[in-house]
Structures are given as C-alpha cells and as structure tokens.
Design a binder for these strands. Structure first.
Length: 490
RNA sequence: GGUACCGUGGCCGAGUGGCUAGGCGGAGGUCUGCAAAACCUUACACAGCGGUUCGAAUCCGCUCGGUACCUCCA
C-alpha cells in the first residue's frame, strides 16, 4: 500500500513522507504523565494528539506498537522545596507510601483517558519497573567514555559527546551558547559543566525512593527512563517519538545524546511535538498554577469555568486546532466547540431520516478523498472537521429537499462520518442523558400527547404551561413539523 | 542574552503566491399559535512599514507585540 502520509519531523523541521523502518510494523513512543497529581487540560493534548496518530496509522494498515510510559519515579522539584522528590513530597504530605500515591493517580489518569475515549497504548511501562535497565544503560554510556562518576552520581559529559556527535541537533542549540548561560542550581558543583545532566543521582537521606547501584544508593537520572523503555520495547531504532513541545529541550535532546552515546545512533526517525494549551496566551501548567484539571472540566467546579464541559467537548475542542499550534482556552471557545460538535452529531443522525433519491445532485464521494488528504497532511484534524461541516450542510439541504442524495450516497456519507469522526478522530456519541428508562419515556410520551391535544384545541395556555414547567425541570420541548420532541438539557 | 515559534474578522481557528476555509457569535430569512430548537442566506480578516512579483495573508527585510525553552520539573 502506498502511503502519502506526511509528518512534520521536529528533527529536520520539515514535513516528510512517512516511511516505516520495517513496514507494516510501526513503533511509536510517547512521553506519558508523571503521576503525582490529577491530569489537567495540558495532559489531554498529547494524549489525544497521539491517540489520533495511533488510530490513523492503524487505519492505514500498519501494525502499530504504541508505548506510552508512566513516570512514577519522582524527581527534583524546582521550587522553594529544593532538592525534594516530587513523589516523596506528596507522600509525606498525605502520609502515604510513594507507590500508593502512584497507584492512586495512575488510576485516575486512566479513568480520565477512558472518558476522553483515548485508546490504551500497547504497552504502558513504568520507570520504577526498569531501574535495572537504566543502570545498565548508564554503565554502557560510562564504558563508552561519555559519562563520569562523581561522589556516587553519574553525569553525562556533554562537552565530550559534542566532539563526536552533535548535541543540540533537535533543539537547534549550540554548545557555545550553553556555556554562556549558567544558572545557579543545586548540585552543580559536582558537574564539569553546568549543562551536563545526571544519569544516576545519589539519594540524600530524605529521599524515600531509592535503589542500589554500583555507584550509590540513589535513583536514575531524568532522561534515562525514556531511552531505556523505548529501546526495550521498540528496539534501538524505531519510527516515531512524540511528546509535548516543552519536552523538546532538554529532555528529548538528552535522549538522543544518551542513545548515541550508548549505541552510536539516534533512537527515533521521526520526532513529533504537540504544542501547548494556553490560558490568556500563557502556558497552562503546574508552575503557573493556572491549570484546570480534567475532572474540574467534567464537573464544572472551577472558578474559571462557567459550567461543565463533557469529555467529548474537550476532545473536539483540541481536535479543532492543529496539534502544532498553540490552543487558547476560554469558556467561549469551549462552548463553540460543543455546539459545533453537536451540530455534526445531529446531522449524522439525520442521514438515516432522509428519503433516498434516484440520483444524487451533489458529489459526495470527493469528501472521503478530501478528508484523507487532510489526515495525510500531518494529521490536519481541523481541516477534516471543516470538510465534515461542509458535508453536514449538504445533508441538511438534502433533508430540506434542496439537494438529492441516492441511497448509495447516503450510506457513503454515513461511512465518512463513521470513519473520520468516530473511528479516527475518536469522537463518540455521548448518551444524551435521556434518562431513557421505559417508565420515563412512557411518561414523556403521555405528557406530549396531552400537550398535542391541547394545541389542537388551541388551548395554548395549557400547552405553554406544560412546556414551561418541563423547562424548569431541564426538559426541553422542541416543536417540529412532525410533532414535538424532547430532550434533557445538559 | 541564546534557541524555537507566533501575531488572521467580536471569539476560537485553517490556509504558505492567484481560487469561499470551518465553527461560535452577529444580521436577515424559513418553519411555528407563540417561543425555543433546527435549517438556509449573509457581512466582517490577514500587526505595521518597505521590498520581490503580472499578482502576497502566503516569499524577503525591518519595526512593534506575544509565547515557550535555556539541564536538574518530567
């Protein structure tokens, strides 16, 4: 099968034709969450971005192994509580075992991902489960001469590495520039250069999470886990490495350095980075304390939220922007996304109501090709949605008798929605919260019949009374040509 | 200071040389006892200044404004 898929490769800063190293197999590694707190909107973006990549690669007939890690070995915190392990801190505060914290937030993360209809990755390895491999990789780098030990810690020798390889190839940084800018940070005196990074760090007494190693009782460095887990499950060379743009430097740069220092070559062929979610133009993140958790979105319980937004609204909102653009959050933008999504879903349901014509008056087939082209062009989901909106308009016009669609074309139209909206973009039809028990439905049918009778007798005060009272109960009555319908407002 | 990037109509957001992006909101209309909903139609744009070109939102330069990252937060 010939693929025309083009992916923007952060390494070359160009869109490149996607050619798997070993077709039809595709290996993809994505940096997952650190599980010391609830996932916020910023976490949803990479999860959904790469979920769509995963879905589309499979759709194209590839056999994809998708590895997304869980970082459960806490690392150092960059605030006033300097030198304290993130997970350790949470554990002390809440009087829990570190692994208990990890388990708690991992479960909550998984639940949020399910709500967002994010497919499970093929493998979800944890850093704590790969300590031995991380020690082995540190040893290998040490043996190759690209690291040095100092007081029980092992550091990567960036300057030496840069003589044989190119440190900064991903982020565009030059080592000379790194020399110029030096921050005062703890533990820096052990390092030869400020930009050297730790492969193994000796634990100080307040660290709860530590493991034995040839160098000290300690914990692995910050970039090692991804190098280890990607190569273990995908091989030393694999196709796609993904993550947020904020990880590009230093994290991914260091991963590349570690792989080259250990194996002599880069780990991934294509590097993909999703952009950030912003709030009033600023990054949504922990450090700025301007984040809103997914659970808060779903419940509406946050001072910045006018109301609750469903998981599918969040998903649709994210997909309405291209993954490499920043996306600005606001209540207005979310409401717009919700309305737009409902419009698509409503027209999708309308398809089966339309009486087929003997011949179509519009070319519906081209939309499938156009949607595919949009996906092939670096996963341009907003364009796919724009095409679906155009298609939606045609469906509505057909419903109004202004356009004609044959039975075949109606079915074809339904298939486009199924493929692109549901299968690839992963939007799922949310239960309209109809309280759809037989009893409830029966009651509503009866009430609407009574109202219909009243209207026939031109007893509008009774008809309006029923409508108003139901409205107070959040049940919305809609009069259409074919009689009244109802739905529960969200 | 360095590196990467962005600035599109009221809001969100595509688009990298010529052709309607799209959604929300606005306006007008259809439908309706009325209303809501739904649908249809429609107006509004390319930060500023120069340059290249037959032609630029799109390429180049400058100016202004904004964001992210710069090694111990992954």
């Amino acid at each position: 099968m010939e693929s025309k898929l083009r992916i923007y490769n952060s390494l070359t800063r160009k869109k490149e034709i996607f050619e798997p190293l070993d077709p039809p197999h595709v290996g993809m590694y994505v940096c997952g969450p650190t599980v010391y707190g609830d996932a916020h909107l910023g976490h949803a973006r990479p999860a959904i971005t790469f979920d769509v990549v995963f879905r589309y690669l499979m759709h194209l007939g590839n056999k994809v192994r998708y590895v997304r890690n869980i970082t459960d070995v806490g690392h150092l915190e960059n605030d006033a509580d300097e030198g304290e392990d993130k997970i350790t801190k949470k554990a002390r505060v809440e009087q829990l075992e570190p692994m208990e914290v990890v388990k708690y937030f991992t479960d909550r993360y998984h639940h949020n991902m399910d709500q967002l209809n994010v497919l499970h990755p093929s493998i979800e390895p944890t850093a704590s489960g790969h300590i031995i491999e991380q020690i082995e990789l540190a040893k290998a780098i040490l043996n190759n001469g690209y690291a040095y030990e100092k007081d029980g810690s092992v550091y990567f020798d960036v300057e030496k590495y840069n003589k044989a390889y190119h440190y900064g190839k991903l982020s565009g940084r030059k080592i000379e520039d790194l020399f110029q800018y030096t921050r005062e940070l703890s533990g820096q005196k052990e390092k030869r250069n400020s930009f050297d990074f730790a492969l193994w760090k000796k634990a100080d007494p307040k660290h709860i999470m530590h493991w034995p190693s040839p160098w000290s009782e300690g914990f692995p460095g910050w970039h090692l886990e991804c190098s280890v887990m990607s190569s273990k499950y995908l091989g030393e060379r694999f196709d796609i490495h993904g993550g947020g743009m904020d990880l590009l430097f230093p994290h991914h740069e260091c991963e590349i350095a570690q792989s080259n220092a250990a194996t002599g070559h880069d780990p991934a062929k294509y590097w993909m980075h999703n952009n950030l979610i912003t709030v009033h133009g600023q990054k949504m993140g922990k450090s700025l304390n301007n984040f809103i958790t997914l659970n808060e979105f779903f419940s509406g319980e946050h001072e910045s939220l006018d109301r609750a937004y469903s998981p599918m609204t969040i998903r649709f909102f994210i997909l309405q922007a291209h993954y490499r653009s920043t996306l600005d959050f606001s209540n207005e933008a979310l409401s717009a996304a919700e309305k737009g999504m409902n419009r698509l879903l409503d027209t999708y349901h309308l398809i089966k109501e339309i009486a087929p014509a003997s011949q179509s008056s519009v070319d519906i087939r081209k939309f499938a090709e156009m949607c595919k082209e949009a996906m092939d062009d670096d996963f341009n989901t907003p364009i796919v949605l724009a095409h679906l909106f155009d298609l939606s308009k045609i469906i509505n016009q057909a419903n109004d008798g202004k356009e004609n669609l044959s039975a075949d074309d109606l079915e074809f139209t339904g298939n486009i929605f199924t493929t692109y909206l549901f299968e690839l973009l992963g939007i799922k039809k949310e239960d309209k919260n109809t309280g759809d028990t037989a009893l409830f439905g029966g009651l509503m049918d009866t009430i609407l019949k009574i109202r219909e009778e009243a209207k026939k007798k031109k007893d509008y005060s009774t008809a309006d009374y029923i409508r108003d009272e139901l409205n107070k109960l959040n049940i919305l009555i809609k009069d259409t040509k074919d009689g009244a319908t109802w739905e529960i407002k969200k």
